[in-house]
Amino acid sequence: MSLTLYQVSIPALERGLHSLAAILRKTAAHAEAKSIAAEVFLNARLAPDMFPLLRQTQIACDLAKGCAARLAGVEVPSYADDESSFDELQARIARTLDFIANIRPEQLDGSEARTVVLKLRGEEIRFSGLGYLRNFALPNFYFHLTAAYAILRHNGVELGKPDYLGGAPGTLAE
């Protein structure tokens, strides 16, 4: 049995976004229980030259919706990047999940060879669909998920590897 691009992209993006949403819920509860202003976590970063949690979350959503759209050959939805609270980040994640859920497997049929063009730092980069997924979209998506997780762990939120991996017990083998 061979895998389709749909099987290796959409479920991974959905799982990651669900994990991110759960991590943010835990963080909001932690902030409330410890009487810490939400902005402390939303603006926290690992290093001065890295984006804060708020932007890491926005970028993870952008990567997920961009990946799904580009592989499906549809327009990438544009979001305003104006979130400033945990609730607003949850709404962004939900909006992204809704968009991805409407991508059908047949839309990705043959997208391994589809040309994907990105403009990065003023330079145009061309990928095959498979190259885009494997070498750009998924690595960057996981980078920003990991950065968000690490920011929160570093700032005392009680998270563990199961929070990052997400899903119910027994679903990791799927």
Rank of each mutant, 00 (worst) to 15 (best):
A22F: 04
I23F: 01
I23L: 02
L24H: 03
L24P: 05
R25Y: 08
R25I: 12
R25H: 12
K26N: 02
T27A: 13
A28R: 07
A28W: 00
A28M: 04
A28D: 07
A29T: 12
A29I: 10
H30A: 10
H30Y: 15
H30P: 03
A31L: 00
A31G: 02
A31F: 01
E32L: 08
K34G: 09
K34F: 09
S35N: 14
I36H: 02
I36A: 01
A37I: 09
A37K: 12
A37S: 12
A37Y: 06
A37H: 14
A38Q: 12
A38N: 10
E39W: 02
V40W: 03
V40C: 04
V40T: 14
V40N: 12
F41E: 00
F41I: 01
L42M: 00
L42N: 00
N43R: 13
R45F: 01
L46W: 01
L46T: 05
A47R: 14
A47I: 05
P48L: 01
P48T: 08
D49L: 11
M50D: 07
F51Q: 10
P52Q: 01
P52R: 02
L53W: 01
L53D: 01
L53F: 04
L54T: 07
L54C: 08
Q56H: 14
T57E: 05
Q58D: 08
Q58G: 07
A60Q: 01
C61Y: 03
D62F: 06
D62A: 11
D62E: 12
L63I: 10
A64V: 03
A64I: 02
K65C: 10
K65S: 14
G66D: 07
C67G: 15
A68N: 02
A68Y: 00
A69V: 09
A69T: 10
A69P: 07
R70K: 14
L71F: 03
L71D: 04
A72T: 11
A72Q: 09
A72F: 06
G73E: 03
G73W: 05
V74T: 15
V74Y: 13
E75C: 13
E75Q: 15
V76D: 09
V76N: 15
P77D: 08
S78R: 15
S78W: 12
Y79S: 10
A80H: 11
A80T: 14
A80F: 05
D81G: 07
D81I: 06
D82N: 14
D82P: 06
E83Q: 11
E83G: 13
E83F: 08
E83D: 10
S84T: 14
S85F: 08
S85D: 07
F86W: 05
F86M: 05
F86V: 06
F86G: 09
D87Q: 11
D87S: 13
D87C: 09
E88L: 11
E88Y: 09
L89H: 06
Q90G: 15
Q90N: 15
A91Y: 07
A91M: 12
A94E: 12
R95V: 08
T96R: 04
T96M: 02
L97W: 00
D98K: 14
I100P: 01
I100M: 04
I100C: 02
A101F: 01
A101Y: 03
I103P: 00
R104P: 03
R104N: 12
P105A: 15
E106A: 12
E106H: 07
Q107D: 10
L108Y: 04
D109R: 15
D109C: 12
D109M: 10
D109A: 13
S111A: 13
S111Q: 05
S111T: 11
E112M: 05
E112H: 06
E112P: 04
